[in-house]
Structures are given as structure tokens and as C-alpha cells.
Simulated scan of single mutants.
Amino acid sequence: MDQADRMPADWRDLFALTKPRVMSLVVFTGLCGLVAARAPIHPVIAFTAVLCIALGAGAAGALNQWYEADLDAKMRRTVKRPLPDGRLDRQSALHFGVGLSVFSVILMGVAANWLAAAWLTISILFYVFVYTVWLKPRTAQNIVIGGAAGAFPPLIGWAAATGSTPVMAWLMFAIIFLWTPPHFWALSLFVRSDYAKAGVPMLPVTAGIAATRRHILIYTLPMIAAALAPWALGYAGAIYGIVSAALNLVFLLLAIRVAGNRATEPSGMAPEKKLFGFSILYLFVLFGALVADRLVLA
């Protein structure tokens, strides 16, 4: 498409830079951390804290797309993003991402506390510099280490409510951190050709499909242990314990099916697609059950 034929950028292009689908999960887990803390907090401050988590996540997404604009242009599932499609220039995306980052951190510090603002800063910097700039183009372990970026929201939410980050907040962090590899690798299996074309060393590209399936099953085991830990350690009760056990059993069975799949084409990867879809539901329901359980125990 020629430049003259392209529609001018509008607010929807800036909104697309924030990766709204990813942001919805970030907002939810951040809210869960804030509510699970069971601390008295003014509704306006609580709303502002969650808003800051959303803005920080959006800023990180914008900076990620600014840095990876050329890479996104090589992949079918990202080629229509605002930057590779030419609807937005890179300088505008950079200014938007940096401005949103600074605003979200300052607002969090003023409205809630500076510990929450510090963790929000770390989460943005980790996603942009550690994951996007350093890990993603260099190692197949990018999503293992980089998964920490998406695990910060409940920690930030808890800090916003209490000014502290106790063991339970770190357990919520650990659940997301360990959930990220099997979740993302399931997706990467049926979009492997995109990563291969773009030269991104995702695990299915560097180690192959069979090894990635085994890794999904292997990494599911510590995820299950982390998900059961709040109940086992007495930080959650029977409501969470029962829901967590059921969810983890289903996740494990799906991971076993993935490990046993021998298909090499996307059309034969129904188990991977089912696991990816369920993994999103898994995290929403698991954290929802944790919040409900802690509110009952309050």
C-alpha cells in the first residue's frame, strides 16, 4: 500500500500500540493482587493504582513495538500493527511509550506509594530492555526469563494497597512467571514459521517441535507446584485449593496431550491450540478463586 493510500493515524493506532489484549490480563492480575492484600484502601486510590498498572503495561507494549517495528513487518500475525503498516511513525511511538511510562510511574507514586511506583518502573524496564532488547533476539530461553515482566502486576497491586510485598504477593508472581513458558510455547508452536522467517530464536525454531512439546510438559510441573503453594502453605483455604487442583489437573492432561502429539503442521496442532486457549482461562479463574478465597477468609 502506498503512503498516499494509507489512512492517517488516529487514537485507535495509539491504543493498538498498548497491546490491549495483553493489557486485559495485566489489569486483572494487578487488581487481584490489590484486592487479595485485604488492606483498607480508598476506592479512588485503588482505581488509580490499577489504571497506572494498565498505563505502564501499555507503555511497555508501545516501546516493544517501537523497537520491533522491522521485525513485526516480517511476521504475518504482526504485519498489520500500526508501525509496520505505516499508519504511525516510529518517533511518535517512542514518544508515546516514554511519556506514558513516566506518567504512569509518577502517578502511581503520588497516588499510592513509591514502592509500587518502583516495582512498576522495574516491570517496564524489564520488559523493554531485558526481554525485548536483550533476550528475545538472542536466546531460546527468552520467554523463560522474560516471563518475569508479565508477573509483576500482582506484586505492584499488592504494594499499592499495603506498601509491602509479602510472601503471598511473591507466590502470585511465581505462578505467572512459571505459567508463561508453557502458555507462550503452546502459541509459538503453531506460529513457528513466523518466528523462523523473522529470525527470532524461539524454542520451536532452535530446538524443534518435539523438544518444545516436552518443555511444555516439564515446565507445567513447577507451575502446578506454585499454583498449589498458597493452599499448601496456608495462605488460601479450601475454595482456592479445590479450584486450583481441578484447573491444574486439566492443564496437566492437556500438556500431556501436547507432549504426545506428533503433528508437524499447524493444521494438526489442535492440542496446542486447546492448551493455549485454556491457559488464558486458567489464569483468570485461578486468580479469581484466590481473591474470592482470601475475601472469605478475611
Rank of each mutant, 00 (worst) to 15 (best):
S193N: 14
A207Y: 01
L187T: 00
V167C: 10
S164R: 15
T180D: 00
W158A: 07
A161F: 14
S193V: 02
G157Q: 12
A198W: 09
L187M: 03
G157Y: 13
S193P: 00
P182M: 05
K197Q: 15
V200I: 15
A159P: 08
W170T: 09
M172D: 11
H183A: 01
A186P: 06
L171V: 14
W170A: 08
A160T: 06
H183V: 01
L203W: 12
G199W: 05
S188I: 00
Y195T: 03
T162W: 13
W185M: 04
W170Q: 08
L189P: 04
L171R: 09
P204Q: 08
M202C: 02
I209L: 14
Y195V: 03
T162E: 11
A160C: 04
S188R: 00
W179Q: 12
T165W: 05
T162Y: 12
R192S: 14
W179G: 12
G163N: 07
L189Y: 06
S188E: 03
P166H: 04
W185F: 09
A196Q: 15
L203H: 09
P166Q: 06
W158E: 09
K197T: 15
P201H: 06
P204Y: 06
W179Y: 13
P201N: 10
T206W: 01
H183S: 02
G157C: 12
A174K: 00
W158L: 09
D194F: 05
P181W: 12
V200W: 00
R192P: 07
W158I: 11
T165G: 05
G157F: 14
P166I: 06
